[in-house]
Design a protein around this nucleic acid. Structure first.
Lengths: 95, 95
DNA sequence: TTGATAGGCAAGTGTTCACCTGCCTATCGT
DNA sequence: ACGATAGGCAGGTGAACACTTGCCTATCAA
């Protein structure tokens, strides 16, 4: 869908996940859980993060790669360009 | 709040309102209602659009100016730059 | 083979939110 | 003053969603 990117960004936990993936790609689900609890004090379950990763993946913001029993998550910034493209913010003067 | 911009964008009707304001600033509430129904077939009430404009305004995406009994709405693209700034999409290579 | 690790699936709950109806205030023209 | 225009406020409803608990599958090391 079109609005999936906007919906995926409308959640603080998902934005934090994107922050962590943007800081260094190729993290597993358990690594992301550990980072969120230690660095941001997030008290969330593993299943919750898994669901958030599913939302981010279906929005195209996260690409996954399975190796063995591990699943590595990568940040894909390409869908974010759609936002800047839609309202072409660069050529407008701010009033 | 921080996530107000993302929340404001997570709605198709609000995105259409932004489209109309970006196409030509200085529209009143009734003008926006008429544009949404005629150009996009949106069957929504005036109060609904008024609430959406309130969300957009509190997110900083819409600036208003009152003159008499009319209230003119202007598109403010500045908060959108926060998105590109957060994950600095331009300097990353896509994988 | 057994236990530990990494992840997925599904139902239930509480809250948020978009939308409506109903009524009220303020400004303008006549 | 009176009717019409432009907008605001508040309660109520139904659906979407974040989050949990409980259980299951698959891979690796011993």
């Amino acid at each position: 869908m079109v609005g999936d990117v906007f919906h995926a960004l409308d959640d603080r936990t998902r934005r934090l996940v994107l922050d962590e993936l943007a800081a260094g790609d190729g993290k597993t689900l358990f690594e992301i859980c550990a980072l969120l609890t230690t660095r941001h004090g997030l008290g969330v379950t593993r299943q919750t993060i898994s669901q958030h990763l599913g939302v981010l993946e279906s929005a195209g913001l996260v690409v996954t790669e399975r190796r063995g029993r591990c699943k590595f998550h990568y940040f894909n910034p390409e869908p974010l360009a759609e936002i800047a493209r839609r309202w072409h913010t660069e050529e407008r003067t701010q009033r």
